Amino acid sequence: MKIGFDAKRLFHNQTGLGNYSRDLVRILKEFYPQDTYVLFNPKNKTIPFFSDTELFSTVTPKGLWKKLHPIWRTYGIAKEDSLKELDIYHGLSGEIPTNLPKNIKKVVSIHDLIFERYPALYSSWDRHMHRKKFQYAVDHADIVVAISQQTKKDIAQFLKVPEKNIRVIYQGCSNVFKQTFSDDSLSATQTKFNLPKEFVLNVGTIEERKNAFSLVKAVKDLDTTLVLIGRETDYCKAIHTYIEKHHIQAKVVFLKNVSQLELAHIYTLATIFAYPSIFEGFGIPIIEAMFCNTPVITTNSGVFPEAGGPNSVYVDPYNISEIGFQITTLLKNPTLRNEIAEKGRLYVEQFQDHSIATQWHNLYKNLI
């Protein structure tokens, strides 16, 4: 098979959708090297976090399309000669180009419809454009793939796609989170970032939807340290104001410039991973934490029980006292922490590369 991918985020996004794209093409190449994979990249860029470009054929805009690269992936890809050789085109992030030849099977991955569920978090223009692109994609795709059962329900509700026409294939995570690390390497990262012996970790963009503020409030009166790793947004201003007002600067640590390997070390070093997000398409940091044998506290609704499995600890993300109580319970009980971590590590076996690659390969094969 010859499969083309929308590779904008693969090459130009260092987090969420970029990680999903890179991991998917990486594992397909690893487990099914006999197939051909073509990456459609709207503009050249040196990407240190994607080092496998020599294994793939890459297509970029030519001529006038170089100047029009923002719209090339929507309107220009269909004019590329290399496209005509494809069996399948896969839109990895909710979009597929217009006017693709009918003989090419079309697949689209939908990660979430947060712009529909929480419209106040988006401008009216962004909501309009997201809705237009997503609706076109699901209307013209031969198959729609959701990354969770929660997203499948949202696609059916908001985009009016019959649930029987939607497949769910979970996403995995980078192999760096599945490694076992030496004490020396962990100690070096702990020293570099001046991390305490025990701490509560949260990973993800520090924005309203991910709800880090509730964690800050929850640890205010607890004997622990909260470590936040993620890009700061305007939402973070209120968090910093709160921290200063209550004089807890020593209890809340913001880390920046953390490599993926260092992030895996920090997950492993963490006493607890706390993720009281309001809504996600999946919640990949939960999977990363469980692969690193770290017990998880997360939200008790939506996709989170799907990601965290039956043995994680679940809380009302708006209930500060409940979050604080569960953090305290785990901090005081290492036996319980170890039990949760061990069962979580067994649960995430379903997100191993070989399982995900097999599901995708079978889907592609059945399409053609």
Rank of each mutant, 00 (worst) to 15 (best):
S174Y: 02
F181R: 10
L331G: 04
D221K: 14
G76L: 06
H247S: 14
R167M: 07
R22L: 03
V315Q: 15
G302E: 10
I239R: 05
E54A: 15
K45D: 04
Q135E: 13
K133L: 13
P119M: 00
F325L: 13
T294L: 02
Y37A: 14
A264V: 10
N333G: 10
I110T: 13
P33R: 01
E198K: 08
W72E: 06
V296F: 03
D234P: 00
N366D: 13
A238I: 07
L100W: 06
Y118C: 05
F304N: 11
I114Y: 08
I110Q: 06
V59I: 15
R231H: 11
L186S: 06
I114V: 15
D142Q: 04
N366V: 00
V227P: 02
F304S: 01
L263T: 06
L64K: 15
S312T: 11
Q326G: 07
E207F: 04
T271R: 08
A218Q: 04
R9E: 08
A218H: 12
V168E: 11
I166G: 11
A120Y: 12
R127I: 14
D154R: 02
L215T: 05
T271I: 10
D234S: 12
Y267E: 00
L24R: 04
K365P: 01
T189D: 14
V216L: 06
Y364G: 14
K62L: 09
V200A: 04
F56H: 01
K8D: 07
